[in-house]
Amino acid sequence: MSPDPASGIDQDPARRPGVPAEKPPHSQPHARNVAQVRQDGRPTDAGQARTPVFGTAQPPRGLSGRLRSAAYAIPEHYARHWLLLILADRVDVLEHRVRRRPGMAVAAGAGALLGAVALARALGRR
């Protein structure tokens, strides 16, 4: 015997809202087939055709933005579309940290340069 007192109340599939998986087409209450498109023909920031509504948060910028534009030019059924977006995410974080702390970025860059010079000299001596 089931421990749940409401057991079986939705046993009949007819009571389950998602059965069948697709209902016969019918207009949803209060929906209207209104074109709410900004008819300017421009693509979205992701380079896609605009849908009637679209997000406007965090427009792409910098190197990460260029990587995102490149990614969206690749159809999404190719893995490189996603890999490029993930790379853009990581670059975005780095760019953000540089913008927040430019002094540290300069120091890190200088340190990397000195390290590279030292390594080149060491290799040259060999």
Binding site: A57, Q58, A88, D89, D92, H96
Partner: peptide, 10 residues
């Protein structure tokens, strides 16, 4: 950071 195209500031 596992979802592609998650932007700083979102």
């Amino acid at each position: 950071g596992l979802v592609p195209d998650t932007r700083v500031g979102h």
